[in-house]
């Protein structure tokens, strides 16, 4: 099942912060990791991740540094910052509250 663009769009920052909270990575791998998790539910275009990463970096939620990757090439790795972790926790909380409301409404409508 493919998700609505708006729904995926609203969760982009959350997804990137969530992935980086698990382990730092570079742009190309971040998209691959998200797409692997998402399977057929949604697929990110590779080009969309870089503006988001740069925006999150400007916000101070992530930081970057050039490192040598497994393949021996230089890659720009992104790390979540303490501010980013706080934001992630806050966003996860908001997300849970929001989905909780939706779930409750759906349960009521199914029960009728």
């Amino acid at each position: 099942m493919t998700q609505e663009k708006e729904l995926v769009g609203a969760s982009t920052s959350l997804l990137i912060l969530g992935v980086l909270a698990k382990s730092p990575d570079y742009g190309y791998q971040i998209v691959k990791r998200i797409n692997q998790e998402a399977e057929t539910i949604f697929q990110w275009q590779e080009g969309t991740v870089y503006p988001l990463l740069h925006k999150l970096e400007e916000e101070g939620w992530i930081r970057s540094q050039w490192e040598t990757a497994e393949n021996g090439r230089k890659r720009k790795y992104y790390y979540i910052t303490p501010e980013g972790k706080e934001t992630l926790e806050s966003k996860v909380k908001q997300w849970k509250e929001f989905t909780g409301v939706i779930n409750r409404i759906m349960e009521v409508s199914h029960a009728r």
């Binding site: 190309y28 870089y50 890659r75 720009k76």
Partner: peptide
Amino acid sequence: QHLELLSHLED
């Protein structure tokens, strides 16, 4: 950004 684009193309 240029270097990041190049690394993306390489990957």
